[in-house]
């Protein structure tokens, strides 16, 4: 066990979505769920982040954004797709501008289903992400 499991910093990105999952992600920061208990911080900056938490689907105009953000995160890093849209495109899947889930453009480590995903399952997804982070670190080290 390393420091990664005690200090996972998150970058939250929202693609094409109804913003329902975003509300739930923010709910995780509120006193009711308080993810900072686990050392989780919402950084808002890829260069500081360990976990890329994506809600919403990939569309034509945000492909390079998601790829840039992912690329700018230093290793080890994991991606957690939160909600139906991020996992597969959800109800937007057949929209003319939507490509599908996040895994179309960056490798996804954890899928968190739900529409919208509940805070408990988001936190659970992040915890699974931490496990993946540890594995990757072990590989790097």
């Amino acid at each position: 066990m390393s420091f990664f499991s005690r200090s996972p910093w998150i970058l939250h990105y929202d693609g094409s979505s109804c913003n329902g999952c975003d509300i739930e992600v923010l709910a995780c920061l509120t006193p009711l769920y308080d993810v900072e208990r686990f050392g989780i911080v919402n950084t808002g900056n890829p260069k500081h982040a360990d976990i890329l938490l994506v809600t919403g689907s990939v569309n034509e105009r945000n492909i390079d954004i998601i790829q840039n953000l992912y690329r700018q995160m230093p290793d080890p890093k994991v991606v957690v797709a939160v909600g139906a849209c991020a996992c597969s495109g959800g109800i937007f899947a057949r929209a003319y501008n939507v490509q599908g889930g996040i895994d179309k453009v960056v490798p996804v480590d954890v899928y968190v289903p739900g529409c919208a995903a509940r805070p408990e399952s988001i936190i659970d997804g992040v915890v699974q992400g931490i496990a993946a982070l540890e594995q990757k670190r072990a590989k790097v080290a």
């Binding site: 200090s7 208990r37 080890p76 670190r137």
Partner: peptide
């Protein structure tokens, strides 16, 4: 803010992780 907050030693965990991370 009505939250529990992280462990008191959290800054040391953070520093430990930061030193283990890749740097670009």
């Amino acid at each position: 803010q009505g939250r529990v907050g992280p462990p008191v030693l959290q800054p040391f965990y953070d520093l430990g992780k930061l030193l283990q991370k890749d740097v670009r």
